[in-house]
Design a protein around this nucleic acid. Structure first.
Lengths: 156, 156
DNA sequence: CCGACAATTCACAAATTTGTGAAACAAGCG
DNA sequence: CGCTTGTTTCACAAATTTGTGAATTGTCGG
């Protein structure tokens, strides 16, 4: 049973489109999905460029972006400048939920806002307080959820 | 204890900035945060325009966007064309996690990709399968998490 | 009905993002 | 060492997104 490259390209582009719609930058999304379905040992920058039909410069920018949050890793292959890039385990998808300084930050900002409102009985304060509680909740529960995933992943 | 409007504006803009960084469109984010800290009964389009220092057209676009996923609601006030907009309970922040056709979609695409790879022993297939499992996991667990939040929210 | 004003729409402009090509840089290999 | 080739950087161009002003639509109050 051979690889159906056409179907793969389609799946890659569609998956990338979903990520992009969710706010993920375009080229990094395409690179990520391409690496996901790539054969072992990752791909070189030029292979990525050719597969995606874009310039080497675009690849350079995308891999830099992806490396900054540890989604991919550069593998220096002995005796060649053709470094290969490969996905770092499951980091890329868990990172979006695991690494969430965002939630703590929103909670803190909401708490500031609550204090600035003063007026204890106001509906505004109630709303803001609830937002704060919600993000505190996420900040606490998401790491737990990811731990649960990790457990399920390993025990397979 | 009066409202500290300056501190509120700061918190509003900073919170909006966090949402924007997460891929949320700019003006909707600002409108959302402004409504969050607003006094009761919501705000009119022109109040929003004035507070944010933007045109009526920009507000029109932003509220349309926000209404499409039920984050805000338009309240027709009797005997006036000055409709007011207000937040719909906690919808806006839960929606991002609750309404997640995105996760099911990514899972399905990954499953397609897995089939297209064929080759049962390949690392590529293992990676793609794991991605599929991960998004299936989220698709199942996030609604549960949101239910837990709802419970906690009400029992307060 | 008509006058007034709120809200939406539309075409365009401003701003931002994104990718390119060329040049600079780096590292293996003769 | 210096040639060759892969990668990065940079200035610029293309494309997309975002907001504006003017015109349009709708509706409340007289």
């Amino acid at each position: 049973m051979a690889r159906d490259e056409d179907a793969l390209r389609t799946a890659v582009e569609q998956s990338a489109a979903v990520l992009i719609a969710a706010g993920f930058p375009k080229m990094p999304a395409r690179v990520l999905m391409t690496l996901l379905v790539s054969d072992d040992d990752g791909l070189t920058a030029s292979e990525l460029a050719e597969t995606l039909g874009v310039s080497a410069a675009a690849i350079s920018g995308a891999v830099r972006y992806l490396q900054t949050f540890g989604a991919i890793r550069r593998i220096a292959r002995s005796g060649s400048r053709r470094d290969r890039y490969e996905l770092v385990e499951d980091t890329w998808y868990t990172a979006s939920l695991k690494t969430s300084p965002m939630y703590a930050r929103l909670a803190a900002l909401a708490e500031n806002a609550s204090a600035a409102i003063g007026e204890p009985a106001s509906a505004a304060k109630a709303r803001v307080d609830e937002m704060a509680r919600f993000y505190r909740f996420l900040d606490a529960r998401l790491p737990e959820l990811m731990a649960e995933w990790e457990e399920q992943r390993l025990g397979r």
